[in-house]
Design a protein around this nucleic acid. Structure first.
Length: 547
RNA sequence: GCCCCGGUAGCUCAGCUGGAUAGAGCAACGGACUUCUAAUCCGUAGGCCACAGGUUCGAAUCCUGUCCGGGGUACCA
């Protein structure tokens, strides 16, 4: 019986008790108790029924308690406390039994395979190859990868997909910029293109072309030759950056595909048939007013170039056709206004879009010397992701980006990050893991090994019980994260677990002359290691054996 | 103007679908290593949870309004 089942057991009992008193509660819930000295879970049902019952809450709580028939081996104590809370204490027997489950199941502990046999797709980063990935992309990259990891943990078969467009205006500008720098290199006087890419990396690409000397590209080559070369180079840099963070995509989808296979035209045709697209002023408009917007928006420009909404609709139509059970789009806050149009259009065309989850993350503001740095790939006023990784290391960067909720604006102070890299909270988690590894090693050296014969009833210190209670919350944390897709919940949980462990470590010695107690504690401690390792693995952070 | 996020300790941020006395890290101060790793632990200090109303037994959390910051509202992506 897992923790989730326990809660259900208590809730069932509460429900029965309440209805046997002739009342009803629409939504009953059990909270993690804020007062551990009173119990592990608490319920405020009595408080919410006090009016209906016309009785003081304490009295009502007592009455409810008297109707409860909870299994002794699960809940050892039920108390009523001041305003009218019911408090439940998990029995030590149950904790010990769960500890054995953790020990036996290892990394599999808590997996109820919510995604077994299901296919999921996570689309993220999706930056066009116009320049190196920025810190902002980093947030998205890590967020997307961890979401994918969470889904995989739950048993989904996950595709990590990168969607890009190498045919637009921005890419043409990239080609022009590279060509300009190349000509500059050859000593040709030239005006740098208006709004072109000013970053130093453009010069690097030009230099690369110059040094190649295979004659494939010369000063007479067209812009598209330069563009293609630059794209190839930049893309391989992007992939390299992602690899530094241990992020691997297994699908790359080029927007061009939807032009080539006719699906763009098909979408326009469908939209027209459904009276959702019409001609005006030489452009084709999408009737977003039909979706509750104030104005219609342009779908195809007068230049006959589509705006990004059109291929996006085609792309999502394609995603839907691939039979995913779950589709996750990770977008920056700049997409906040556009994706509803895409979903609305798909809905209007008769597609079921409930499998699509759009996760919007807010931007990262870079702060340097107390000043906010405007990030622009074009102006090259950015800190690249590579620079950040070089400065802090992949583990720290990953942790930093998922420890905060995605809807909060992230202020990234470069100086502070560097200063704090030695004191980063991620080390706190890793240190706990390394400490345990060291204990296990020490135990082995000492000849105390066989934790399988451990007598777990010897574990009874307050800190130990508290540690166990935190341990068995892991499955529930992961179930909640499956719902919310908010990775920071994992980080918060691991922090709590590490804190409990470090305190335990300080207060109690694991390996002592008392062999019985030692093996019981080794049992406990290796369970902590198991969960820490699982959690760190989901976050894509390494689990060092020594530090 | 309208829409979406955010405003919590000096700083960066947690706070699960409303629960009891508001949390962590960093920074500050005071303690703890003859022991399995002090990258740790314990303690002190630090708060009108932006502001004003409302909903109710109960609000940082939900609703309304105001203020401040970010983003969108492009025939740029």
């Amino acid at each position: 019986m897992s923790m989730v089942d326990i809660k259900r057991h208590i809730l069932d009992q509460l429900n029965q008790a309440v209805s046997s008193l002739g009342m009803e509660v629409p939504s009953l819930k059990l909270d993690q108790s804020r007062r551990p000295e009173l119990g592990d879970f608490s319920s405020g049902v009595a408080l919410s029924l006090t009016k209906e019952a016309k009785k003081p809450p304490i009295e009502l709580a007592e009455a409810i308690r008297n109707c409860l028939d909870l299994k002794k081996e699960i809940c050892s104590e039920i108390t009523v406390s001041k305003p009218g809370f019911l408090n439940f204490r998990i029995s030590p027997e149950y904790l010990k039994q769960q500890l054995e489950v953790i020990f036996n199941e290892g990394a599999e502990f808590g997996k109820i395979q919510l995604g077994k046999g299901k296919k999921a797709q996570v689309e993220f980063v999706s930056a066009n190859p116009t320049g190196p990935l920025t810190v902002g992309h980093g947030r998205q990259a890590v967020l997307g990868d961890v979401v994918a990891q969470i889904l995989e943990w739950h048993g989904y078969n996950v595709d990590r997909e990168y969607y890009y467009n190498d045919a637009g205006r921005q890419m043409r500008l990239l080609g022009e910029s590279v060509k300009a720098r190349y000509l500059e290199l050859l000593g040709v006087e030239i005006d740098f293109p208006e709004g072109g890419y000013e970053g130093e990396y453009i010069r690097d690409i030009a230099r690369e072309i110059d040094e190649k000397e295979d004659g494939a590209i010369t000063k007479k080559s067209g812009v598209s030759e330069f563009r293609k070369f630059a794209e190839k180079m930049i893309f391989s840099e992007i992939k390299r950056s992602l690899e530094l963070l241990h992020i691997h995509f297994n699908h790359f989808v080029n927007e061009q595909r939807f032009y080539d296979d006719g699906s763009i035209d098909k979408v326009v045709k469908l939209l027209r048939q459904n009276h959702l697209a019409y001609d005006k002023d030489g452009a084709v408009w999408l009737k977003t007013t039909a979706f509750g917007k104030e104005e219609d928006t342009v779908l195809i420009k007068r230049t006959s170039e589509p705006t990004y909404r059109l291929p996006d609709i085609a792309y999502h139509r394609d995603k839907l056709s691939r039979g995913y059970d779950l589709i996750v789009d990770i977008f920056g806050a700049d997409h906040i206004d556009t994706y509803p149009d895409v979903l609305s259009a798909l809905n209007a065309l008769g597609y079921e879009t409930s499998s699509i989850h759009v996760l919007i993350h807010q931007f990262v503001s870079l702060i340097r010397d107390g000043q906010k740095v405007k990030m622009s790939t074009r102006k090259a006023t950015f800190i690249t992701l590579d620079e950040l990784i070089e400065m802090l290391g992949a583990d720290v960067v990953r942790y930093f980006f998922i420890m905060r909720s995605r809807q909060s604006h992230l202020n990234f102070d470069i100086g502070l990050a560097e200063m704090e890299s030695d004191e980063n909270p991620v080390y706190y988690l890793q240190y706990a893991h390394a400490r345990i590894c060291n204990i296990l090693k020490h135990a082995k050296d000492t000849g105390i090994d066989s934790s399988d014969a451990a007598d777990l009833s010897l574990i009874q210190e307050e800190t130990e019980l508290s540690l166990m209670k935190t341990l068995i919350r892991w499955p529930e944390v992961m179930t909640n994260v499956h719902e919310s897709l908010e990775p920071q919940m994992i980080a918060n949980y691991l922090q709590a677990l590490a804190t409990e462990f470090h305190r335990f470590y300080t207060e109690h010695r694991v390996v002592t002359e008392n062999r019985e107690l030692s093996s019981a504690r080794l049992f406990l401690v290796s369970s902590v290691k198991t969960i820490l390792a699982s959690g760190l693995a989901v976050l894509g952070i390494s689990q060092p054996e020594k530090m």
